[in-house]
Protein backbone atom coordinates (compact mmCIF):
# COMPACT_ATOMS: atom_id res chain seq x y z
CA UNK A 1 0.00 0.00 0.00
CA UNK A 2 1.30 3.44 -0.97
CA UNK A 3 1.10 6.17 1.60
CA UNK A 4 0.23 9.61 0.47
CA UNK A 5 2.78 12.13 1.73
CA UNK A 6 1.36 15.28 3.18
CA UNK A 7 3.03 18.64 2.55
CA UNK A 8 3.47 19.20 6.29
CA UNK A 9 5.73 16.16 6.56
CA UNK A 10 8.41 17.63 4.34
CA UNK A 11 8.91 20.51 6.74
CA UNK A 12 9.67 18.25 9.65
CA UNK A 13 13.40 18.33 9.21
CA UNK A 14 13.44 22.09 9.60
CA UNK A 15 11.80 21.83 13.02
CA UNK A 16 14.59 19.96 14.80
CA UNK A 17 18.08 21.26 14.29
CA UNK A 18 19.93 20.66 17.54
CA UNK A 19 22.14 17.64 17.66
CA UNK A 20 21.32 16.57 21.22
CA UNK A 21 17.58 16.21 20.49
CA UNK A 22 18.19 14.31 17.29
CA UNK A 23 20.71 12.05 18.95
CA UNK A 24 18.23 11.21 21.71
CA UNK A 25 15.60 10.24 19.16
CA UNK A 26 18.16 8.16 17.26
CA UNK A 27 19.38 6.32 20.35
CA UNK A 28 15.87 5.68 21.60
CA UNK A 29 14.78 4.16 18.27
CA UNK A 30 17.90 2.04 18.05
CA UNK A 31 17.41 0.80 21.61
CA UNK A 32 13.90 -0.38 20.74
CA UNK A 33 15.17 -2.03 17.52
CA UNK A 34 18.00 -3.90 19.23
CA UNK A 35 15.79 -4.79 22.19
CA UNK A 36 13.17 -6.31 19.91
CA UNK A 37 15.74 -8.21 17.83
CA UNK A 38 17.08 -9.69 21.03
CA UNK A 39 13.54 -10.45 22.17
CA UNK A 40 12.94 -12.44 18.99
CA UNK A 41 16.16 -14.37 19.64
CA UNK A 42 15.18 -15.08 23.24
CA UNK A 43 11.71 -16.18 22.14
CA UNK A 44 13.22 -18.63 19.68
CA UNK A 45 15.47 -19.88 22.46
CA UNK A 46 12.29 -20.50 24.53
CA UNK A 47 13.34 -18.03 27.22
CA UNK A 48 10.12 -16.11 26.55
CA UNK A 49 6.71 -17.77 26.44
CA UNK A 50 3.17 -16.95 25.41
CA UNK A 51 2.45 -14.52 22.63
CA UNK A 52 5.10 -12.00 21.67
CA UNK A 53 4.46 -9.03 19.37
CA UNK A 54 7.40 -6.96 18.16
CA UNK A 55 7.67 -3.23 17.39
CA UNK A 56 10.37 -3.60 14.70
CA UNK A 57 9.67 -1.06 11.95
CA UNK A 58 7.41 1.09 14.16
CA UNK A 59 10.19 2.85 16.11
CA UNK A 60 9.65 6.31 14.59
CA UNK A 61 5.96 6.24 15.50
CA UNK A 62 6.66 5.17 19.06
CA UNK A 63 9.56 7.50 19.77
CA UNK A 64 8.12 10.42 17.80
CA UNK A 65 4.92 10.37 19.85
CA UNK A 66 6.08 9.42 23.33
CA UNK A 67 9.14 11.70 23.36
CA UNK A 68 6.72 14.64 23.16
CA UNK A 69 5.32 13.81 26.61
CA UNK A 70 6.29 14.81 30.13
CA UNK A 71 7.11 12.15 32.75
CA UNK A 72 3.75 12.79 34.48
CA UNK A 73 1.73 12.26 31.29
CA UNK A 74 0.01 8.90 30.90
CA UNK A 75 0.55 6.34 28.13
CA UNK A 76 -1.89 3.51 27.46
CA UNK A 77 -0.90 0.88 24.93
CA UNK A 78 -1.68 -2.53 23.51
CA UNK A 79 -0.13 -5.98 23.54
CA UNK A 80 2.54 -4.70 21.09
CA UNK A 81 4.09 -2.38 23.64
CA UNK A 82 7.68 -3.26 24.55
CA UNK A 83 8.87 -0.16 22.67
CA UNK A 84 6.24 2.10 24.21
CA UNK A 85 7.27 0.99 27.70
CA UNK A 86 10.94 1.66 27.00
CA UNK A 87 10.19 5.00 25.35
CA UNK A 88 8.18 6.05 28.44
CA UNK A 89 11.26 5.48 30.54
CA UNK A 90 10.91 1.97 31.94
CA UNK A 91 14.31 0.31 32.41
CA UNK A 92 14.85 -2.26 29.61
CA UNK A 93 16.03 -4.65 32.32
CA UNK A 94 12.56 -4.63 33.93
CA UNK A 95 10.91 -5.09 30.53
CA UNK A 96 13.12 -8.04 29.56
CA UNK A 97 12.66 -9.56 33.03
CA UNK A 98 8.89 -9.37 32.54
CA UNK A 99 9.19 -11.14 29.18
CA UNK A 100 11.19 -13.81 30.99
CA UNK A 101 8.38 -14.03 33.59
CA UNK A 102 10.65 -13.02 36.45
CA UNK A 103 9.79 -11.44 39.80
CA UNK A 104 11.90 -8.40 38.88
CA UNK A 105 9.77 -7.67 35.80
CA UNK A 106 7.51 -4.64 35.50
CA UNK A 107 4.54 -6.79 36.53
CA UNK A 108 6.44 -9.29 38.70
CA UNK A 109 6.02 -12.00 36.08
CA UNK A 110 2.21 -11.93 36.38
CA UNK A 111 1.64 -10.12 33.09
CA UNK A 112 4.26 -11.05 30.51
CA UNK A 113 4.87 -9.49 27.10
CA UNK A 114 1.32 -8.16 26.73
CA UNK A 115 0.89 -6.62 30.21
CA UNK A 116 3.80 -4.31 30.99
CA UNK A 117 3.04 -1.58 33.55
CA UNK A 118 4.71 1.12 35.59
CA UNK A 119 2.87 3.50 37.90
CA UNK A 120 6.09 5.50 38.46
CA UNK A 121 6.61 6.11 34.75
CA UNK A 122 2.89 6.55 34.20
CA UNK A 123 3.02 3.78 31.66
CA UNK A 124 -0.53 2.64 32.36
CA UNK A 125 -0.33 -0.67 30.69
CA UNK A 126 -0.38 -3.05 27.82
CA UNK A 127 -3.89 -4.39 27.18
CA UNK A 128 -4.49 -7.51 25.13
CA UNK A 129 -8.12 -6.99 24.08
CA UNK A 130 -8.25 -4.88 20.92
CA UNK A 131 -9.76 -1.46 21.68
CA UNK A 132 -10.15 -2.11 25.39
CA UNK A 133 -7.75 0.52 26.67
CA UNK A 134 -9.30 3.54 24.94
CA UNK A 135 -12.22 3.91 27.39
CA UNK A 136 -9.84 3.37 30.32
CA UNK A 137 -7.51 6.05 28.97
CA UNK A 138 -10.51 8.38 28.88
CA UNK A 139 -10.93 7.68 32.60
CA UNK A 140 -7.41 8.90 33.34
CA UNK A 141 -8.11 12.00 31.25
CA UNK A 142 -11.34 12.58 33.19
CA UNK A 143 -9.35 12.32 36.43
CA UNK A 144 -6.88 14.93 35.15
CA UNK A 145 -9.71 17.39 34.55
CA UNK A 146 -11.32 16.45 37.87
CA UNK A 147 -8.13 17.18 39.81
CA UNK A 148 -7.27 20.21 37.72
CA UNK A 149 -3.71 19.19 36.79
CA UNK A 150 -2.21 19.83 33.35
CA UNK A 151 -1.20 16.28 32.49
CA UNK A 152 -2.07 14.65 29.19
CA UNK A 153 -3.06 11.10 28.24
CA UNK A 154 -1.77 9.33 25.13
CA UNK A 155 -3.78 6.31 24.04
CA UNK A 156 -2.00 4.18 21.44
CA UNK A 157 -3.70 1.43 19.44
CA UNK A 158 -3.64 -0.24 16.04
CA UNK A 159 -5.70 0.32 12.91
CA UNK A 160 -7.77 -2.75 13.82
CA UNK A 161 -9.05 -1.06 16.98
CA UNK A 162 -10.72 1.71 14.99
CA UNK A 163 -13.45 -0.66 13.82
CA UNK A 164 -14.54 -1.44 17.36
CA UNK A 165 -17.34 0.27 19.28
CA UNK A 166 -15.04 1.26 22.14
CA UNK A 167 -13.02 3.45 19.73
CA UNK A 168 -16.11 5.41 18.75
CA UNK A 169 -17.46 5.64 22.30
CA UNK A 170 -14.09 6.97 23.41
CA UNK A 171 -13.74 9.62 20.71
CA UNK A 172 -17.29 10.74 21.41
CA UNK A 173 -16.80 11.37 25.13
CA UNK A 174 -13.29 12.75 24.67
CA UNK A 175 -14.76 15.52 22.55
CA UNK A 176 -17.93 15.87 24.61
CA UNK A 177 -16.09 16.15 27.94
CA UNK A 178 -13.04 18.10 26.67
CA UNK A 179 -10.59 15.42 27.70
CA UNK A 180 -6.84 16.14 27.47
CA UNK A 181 -6.07 13.09 25.37
CA UNK A 182 -4.23 12.29 22.14
CA UNK A 183 -5.42 9.13 20.41
CA UNK A 184 -2.56 7.65 18.42
CA UNK A 185 -3.46 5.12 15.76
CA UNK A 186 -0.42 3.06 14.82
CA UNK A 187 -1.63 2.13 11.36
CA UNK A 188 0.73 -0.66 10.35
CA UNK A 189 -1.69 -1.63 7.58
CA UNK A 190 -2.69 -4.99 9.06
CA UNK A 191 -4.97 -6.11 11.88
CA UNK A 192 -3.26 -9.46 12.45
CA UNK A 193 -3.33 -10.82 8.89
CA UNK A 194 -6.20 -8.72 7.56
CA UNK A 195 -5.20 -5.68 5.56
CA UNK A 196 -6.81 -2.41 6.60
CA UNK A 197 -8.74 -2.14 3.33
CA UNK A 198 -10.29 -5.56 3.97
CA UNK A 199 -11.48 -4.55 7.45
CA UNK A 200 -12.30 -0.86 7.41
CA UNK A 201 -14.70 0.98 5.10
CA UNK A 202 -12.49 4.03 5.56
CA UNK A 203 -8.80 3.24 5.10
CA UNK A 204 -7.57 6.72 5.98
CA UNK A 205 -8.13 6.33 9.69
CA UNK A 206 -7.70 10.03 10.49
CA UNK A 207 -11.01 10.68 8.72
CA UNK A 208 -12.88 8.73 11.37
CA UNK A 209 -12.40 11.64 13.80
CA UNK A 210 -14.49 13.87 11.54
CA UNK A 211 -17.61 12.18 12.90
CA UNK A 212 -16.76 13.69 16.30
CA UNK A 213 -15.66 17.10 15.04
CA UNK A 214 -12.22 16.33 16.41
CA UNK A 215 -8.80 17.53 15.26
CA UNK A 216 -7.09 14.77 13.32
CA UNK A 217 -3.89 14.32 11.37
CA UNK A 218 -2.20 11.69 9.26
CA UNK A 219 1.57 11.52 9.35
CA UNK A 220 4.34 9.42 7.86
CA UNK A 221 4.99 7.08 10.74
CA UNK A 222 8.43 6.17 9.37
CA UNK A 223 9.70 9.74 9.85
CA UNK A 224 10.40 10.35 13.51
CA UNK A 225 10.78 14.11 13.03
CA UNK A 226 7.45 14.42 11.25
CA UNK A 227 5.75 12.38 13.96
CA UNK A 228 7.35 14.39 16.73
CA UNK A 229 6.52 17.70 15.14
CA UNK A 230 2.81 17.00 14.80
CA UNK A 231 2.63 15.28 18.21
CA UNK A 232 4.08 18.39 19.86
CA UNK A 233 1.18 20.39 18.45
CA UNK A 234 -1.49 17.89 19.47
CA UNK A 235 -0.09 17.43 22.97
CA UNK A 236 -0.01 21.20 23.45
CA UNK A 237 -3.61 21.40 22.28
CA UNK A 238 -4.62 18.73 24.78
CA UNK A 239 -2.67 20.31 27.62
CA UNK A 240 -3.58 23.92 27.06
CA UNK A 241 -7.02 23.78 25.48
CA UNK A 242 -8.30 20.40 26.73
CA UNK A 243 -9.07 19.50 23.14
CA UNK A 244 -8.60 15.86 22.15
CA UNK A 245 -7.21 14.70 18.81
CA UNK A 246 -6.61 11.65 16.66
CA UNK A 247 -3.19 11.13 15.10
CA UNK A 248 -2.80 8.43 12.46
CA UNK A 249 0.79 7.30 12.02
CA UNK A 250 1.21 5.20 8.90
CA UNK A 251 3.93 2.69 9.57
CA UNK A 252 4.85 -0.93 9.07
CA UNK A 253 5.92 -3.89 11.12
CA UNK A 254 8.70 -5.82 9.47
CA UNK A 255 7.94 -9.00 11.40
CA UNK A 256 4.68 -10.98 11.57
CA UNK A 257 1.78 -10.13 13.85
CA UNK A 258 3.34 -12.23 16.58
CA UNK A 259 6.31 -14.56 16.76
CA UNK A 260 4.04 -17.42 15.70
CA UNK A 261 2.82 -15.68 12.50
CA UNK A 262 4.09 -17.35 9.28
CA UNK A 263 3.39 -14.07 7.45
CA UNK A 264 1.73 -15.58 4.36
CA UNK A 265 -0.74 -12.75 3.72
CA UNK A 266 1.68 -10.17 2.33
CA UNK A 267 4.46 -10.20 -0.23
CA UNK A 268 8.16 -10.19 0.58
CA UNK A 269 8.58 -7.28 -1.87
CA UNK A 270 6.18 -5.18 0.18
CA UNK A 271 8.26 -5.74 3.30
CA UNK A 272 11.48 -4.92 1.42
CA UNK A 273 9.97 -1.75 0.03
CA UNK A 274 9.07 -0.49 3.48
CA UNK A 275 12.53 -1.38 4.75
CA UNK A 276 14.02 1.06 2.26
CA UNK A 277 12.35 3.77 4.32
CA UNK A 278 13.70 2.47 7.60
CA UNK A 279 13.21 5.11 10.32
CA UNK A 280 16.55 4.58 12.00
CA UNK A 281 18.63 4.52 8.81
CA UNK A 282 16.76 7.57 7.52
CA UNK A 283 17.47 9.64 10.61
CA UNK A 284 21.10 8.48 10.57
CA UNK A 285 21.51 9.57 6.94
CA UNK A 286 19.87 12.92 7.71
CA UNK A 287 22.22 13.52 10.63
CA UNK A 288 25.26 12.53 8.59
CA UNK A 289 24.30 15.02 5.89
CA UNK A 290 23.97 17.68 8.59
CA UNK A 291 27.48 16.73 9.83
CA UNK A 292 26.00 15.75 13.18
CA UNK A 293 26.99 12.11 13.05
CA UNK A 294 29.77 10.00 11.53
CA UNK A 295 29.85 6.32 10.60
CA UNK A 296 32.24 5.74 13.51
CA UNK A 297 29.83 7.36 15.94
CA UNK A 298 26.96 5.28 14.58
CA UNK A 299 28.98 2.15 15.19
CA UNK A 300 29.91 3.23 18.71
CA UNK A 301 26.30 4.03 19.61
CA UNK A 302 25.23 0.64 18.28
CA UNK A 303 27.86 -1.08 20.41
CA UNK A 304 26.72 0.77 23.53
CA UNK A 305 23.10 -0.06 22.93
CA UNK A 306 23.82 -3.67 22.08
CA UNK A 307 25.70 -3.91 25.38
CA UNK A 308 22.74 -2.34 27.21
CA UNK A 309 20.40 -4.94 25.74
CA UNK A 310 22.83 -7.76 26.61
CA UNK A 311 22.85 -6.42 30.15
CA UNK A 312 19.03 -6.50 30.22
CA UNK A 313 19.09 -10.15 29.15
CA UNK A 314 21.70 -10.98 31.78
CA UNK A 315 19.59 -9.27 34.42
CA UNK A 316 16.51 -11.20 33.30
CA UNK A 317 18.39 -14.50 33.21
CA UNK A 318 19.77 -14.03 36.71
CA UNK A 319 16.56 -12.75 38.29
CA UNK A 320 14.46 -15.02 40.52
CA UNK A 321 11.22 -16.67 39.46
CA UNK A 322 8.09 -15.64 41.39
CA UNK A 323 7.67 -17.65 44.59
CA UNK A 324 4.81 -20.20 44.29
CA UNK A 325 3.59 -19.11 47.71
CA UNK A 326 2.78 -15.74 46.15
CA UNK A 327 0.35 -17.16 43.57
CA UNK A 328 -2.60 -15.36 45.18
CA UNK A 329 -0.81 -12.10 45.93
CA UNK A 330 -2.51 -9.03 44.42
CA UNK A 331 -5.75 -10.66 43.30
CA UNK A 332 -7.23 -8.10 45.69
CA UNK A 333 -5.81 -4.90 47.06
CA UNK A 334 -5.30 -4.74 50.78
CA UNK A 335 -5.62 -8.44 51.62
CA UNK A 336 -4.62 -11.98 50.73
CA UNK A 337 -6.63 -14.61 48.91
CA UNK A 338 -10.42 -14.54 48.88
Amino acid sequence: MKVEQRPADSKSKEAFTDKASLLNLYREMLLIRRFEEKTAEMYQAAKIGGFCHLNIGEEATIVGTISALRPTDYVYSTYREHGHAIAKGIDPRAVMAELFGKETGTSHGRGGSMHLFSADRRFYGGYAIVGQALPIACGSAYAINYKGTDDVVMSSFGDGATNIGAFHESLNVAKLWHLPIVFVCVNNLYGMGTAVNRASAVTEIWKKACAYDMTSERVDGMDVLAVRRITDQLVAQAREEHEPSLLECVTYRYRGHSMSDPDTYRGKDEIKEWQTRDPILSLGEHMKKQKMLTNEEIERIDEEITAQVEDAVKFAEESPEPDPKDLYRDVYAGEGAA
Binding site: I136, G139, Y142, A143, V173
Partner: peptide, 20 residues
Protein backbone atom coordinates in the same frame (compact mmCIF):
# COMPACT_ATOMS: atom_id res chain seq x y z
CA UNK B 1 -23.08 9.83 30.32
CA UNK B 2 -24.18 8.76 26.86
CA UNK B 3 -26.06 5.46 26.69
CA UNK B 4 -22.83 3.61 26.09
CA UNK B 5 -22.06 1.09 28.82
CA UNK B 6 -18.52 0.25 27.73
CA UNK B 7 -17.34 3.84 28.01
CA UNK B 8 -19.05 4.21 31.40
CA UNK B 9 -17.21 1.27 32.94
CA UNK B 10 -13.97 2.00 31.07
CA UNK B 11 -13.95 5.63 32.20
CA UNK B 12 -14.63 4.50 35.75
CA UNK B 13 -11.71 2.05 35.66
CA UNK B 14 -9.24 4.62 34.33
CA UNK B 15 -10.41 7.21 36.84
CA UNK B 16 -10.06 4.66 39.64
CA UNK B 17 -6.49 3.86 38.53
CA UNK B 18 -5.76 7.58 38.51
CA UNK B 19 -6.73 8.36 42.10
CA UNK B 20 -10.52 8.78 42.08
Amino acid sequence: TPIAEEIIIGTAIGAAMSGL
